[in-house]
Design a protein around this nucleic acid. Structure first.
Length: 256
DNA sequence: ATGACTGGTGTGACCAGA
């Protein structure tokens, strides 16, 4: 079974890219982030015609997450991270598909840091951490996947020294990620690639893709049951080179 | 170090992204 995550950066603006990639990569389950679309404008028909059913938690202009499947309809479990009823950002959706619990997330960027946006990021991280402990109590396979907006280590950023004060790389968020993983998750891509450099994002600025000035910020965290079933994984980096493409590339894993 | 791109919104001397 192939599970993928893709920060599309506008599901309507990128629809052709998304459909082209779905057709080519044929993932069974897909988590999308940054829909930048209200629920009513989600391109349901085009995605259904491509062979996928789905659930989505949209929002006008910003954020927005979705879970798509071609192996059976996702059964929604929740569409917000618990812990803050005042939080109006659409950044989390969770479903069960064929016995697998899938949490799809879009963690806040947090810049500029320090400041209220960075505080919000750290708060969101705390809520994720609390919720993730509940997910780890489940007996079945669980994946917590999406755009974490964190480079976990220096290996995951092309020029670490330039990013030290950035909200994606500050010690607080790296620590938060490390602690989250330490609860019992497996960072699937890092586990598969060892010390190899593998990026999932390249800025639109400064010709970053051609220079391979990338970041690894899209992550798959697997619970122990699913980690044992991990076969392979990768980044469809060529998709980042397409016309009108997102600044992220799709990332995927294969599990038994 | 800075400024460079992009989608969405709606026509902004915009906002937000990472």
């Amino acid at each position: 079974m192939k599970i993928a995550t893709y920060n599309v950066n506008g599901v309507n603006g990128r629809l052709n890219v998304l459909l082209r990639w779905l057709k080519e990569a044929k993932p069974d389950i897909v988590c999308l982030q940054e829909l930048k679309s209200p629920n009513i404008k989600f391109p349901e028909k085009a995605i259904r015609d491509a062979g996928y059913t789905g659930i989505w938690h949209g929002q006008k202009s910003w954020n927005g997450v979705a879970i798509l499947s071609r192996i059976g309809e996702p059964v929604e479990i929740r569409r917000a991270l618990p812990g803050d009823p005042e939080d109006v950002h659409s950044r989390y959706i969770e479903a069960e598909i064929k016995g697998i619990t899938v949490g799809c997330l879009y963690l806040p960027n947090g810049n500029p840091a320090p400041g209220p946006k960075f505080d919000y990021k750290l708060e969101w991280f705390k809520r994720l951490s609390v919720h993730s402990k509940k997910l780890l109590k489940l007996k079945g396979p669980v994946v917590l996947v999406g755009d974490y907006n964190v480079m976990p280590t220096e290996l995951d950023v092309y020029k670490p020294e330039r990013w030290l004060k950035d909200a994606l790389f500050r010690p607080e968020v790296r620590t938060a990620f490390k602690k989250l993983v330490a609860h019992g998750w497996t960072d699937a891509i890092r586990t598969l690639y060892g010390d190899e450099i593998i990026y999932t994002f390249w800025d639109y600025f400064r010709n970053a893709y051609a220079r391979n000035a990338g970041l690894r910020i899209d992550h798959f965290l697997l619970n122990p049951v699913l980690a044992k079933r991990l076969k392979s994984g990768g980044v469809d980096r060529h998709v980042r080179g397409w016309e009108k493409t997102s600044d992220h590339a799709p990332v995927w894993i294969e599990v038994k």
